[in-house]
């Protein structure tokens, strides 16, 4: 029997077609993320930019707290909504930064063997809890707890939403911060120990400064998570247009406003376009936060 003749280069047989097909599918998969992001941005812009061309009052949008889209004289001031989102996210960071950085340092530097594995799995499980469940916890348990402990009339406020959101953002921040700590070469630690540094000094003076960029990125991604979260904030924040002066004030977030009102406006109306404009605003802010986080992480690798 003759040996099979070697395939001519460039022959268009079945294997060639399969190869091309696989290549195409993988290429499509690879660029789909980019296409989707661009597609979403184009769609949101197309719906929302009508609001700009229909005489957007940017000063009102940025400086007035009066969000009255269905009034006889509609006003579209988003200041209170921005303040709502900012206050809830800010408080969430106060809760989650110490918690998650502490957890990351413990897992990365102190915990050993099974404790470490168990903690990592548990923290990842925490990230898998759906946001509506967190919202429900805020609406029922936290609400009553805050009323009892602080003696305030209603427990749905900045404090409630901030704590819930802080707990939601903590797992992702812990995971990324721990990766950053792990990326610090062991040689640094050994060198510091050789110089007679205590364990605490190694972590505080050597590991954390070396992992600084990664830790900042972890916090920024947590901020992005908080900024974009909708359901839990909608349920726990009290849904009240208000520039908060204390953690016990109810507020309304940008995301919650879109979620609550979008399904209920006529397509193409001014109110509908204004909501999409809020969406553009959110998209741009979250994009900027994530981009900053990305650049900061890149900084660690090049530097």
């Amino acid at each position: 029997m003759a040996a099979p003749s070697p395939a001519r280069p460039g022959a268009r047989d079945l294997a060639w077609a399969g190869d091309k097909l696989a290549q195409g599918v993988i290429f499509l998969g690879g660029i789909s993320g980019i296409l989707l992001v661009i597609g979403i941005f184009v769609f949101v812009s197309r719906e929302g930019l009508g609001f700009v061309s229909n005489g957007l009052d940017l000063r009102e949008f940025l400086t007035s707290p009066a969000w009255r889209p269905t009034s006889n004289h509609p006003t579209f001031g988003a200041l209170a909504l921005m303040a709502g989102t900012a206050s809830v996210t800010g408080l969430a960071m106060l809760v989650s930064v110490p918690l998650s950085l502490g957890a990351a340092i413990f897992i990365g530097e102190f915990a050993k063997g099974r404790t470490r594995e168990l903690l990592k799995v548990l923290i990842e499980m925490l990230a898998a809890i759906p946001s509506v469940v967190w919202g429900f916890i805020g609406l029922t348990m936290m609400n009553e707890l805050i009323i009892d402990v602080f003696n305030v009339p209603v427990g749905l406020n900045v404090l409630n939403a901030g704590i819930i959101l802080g707990l939601m953002a903590a797992p992702i921040m812990t995971t990324i911060a721990e990766d950053a700590l792990k990326a610090v070469p062991d040689g640094y630690r050994q060198a510091a120990e050789a110089m007679g540094a205590t364990r605490w000094q190694v972590i505080w003076r050597v590991v954390i400064p070396a992992a600084k960029n990664g830790l900042v990125a972890a916090v920024l991604l947590g901020v992005g998570r908080g900024f974009g979260e909708t359901m839990a904030v909608l349920m726990a924040s009290g849904h009240s247009i208000n520039i908060p002066t204390s953690p016990f004030d109810s507020v309304r977030a940008l995301t919650a406003t879109i979620a609550a009102e979008l399904g209920e406006t006529a397509v193409g109306s001014e109110h509908y376009q204004a909501l999409f404009f809020l969406g553009i605003f959110l998209f741009v802010v979250t994009f900027a936060i994530n981009l900053t986080a990305d650049l900061v992480v890149r900084g660690i690798k090049n530097g």
């Binding site: 009255r68 309304r252 009102e261 209920e264």
Partner: peptide, 29 residues
């Protein structure tokens, strides 16, 4: 109530004489 509610609109028209609501009310769904 949330601002697409008919109850909200009716209350606004009759009790507030068509004027706007105060900001800072807790808007239920």
């Amino acid at each position: 109530r949330q601002n697409n509610s008919g109850t909200y609109a009716y209350f606004q028209e009759v009790v507030l004489g068509g004027k706007d609501f105060k900001l800072g009310t807790r808007d239920m769904h």
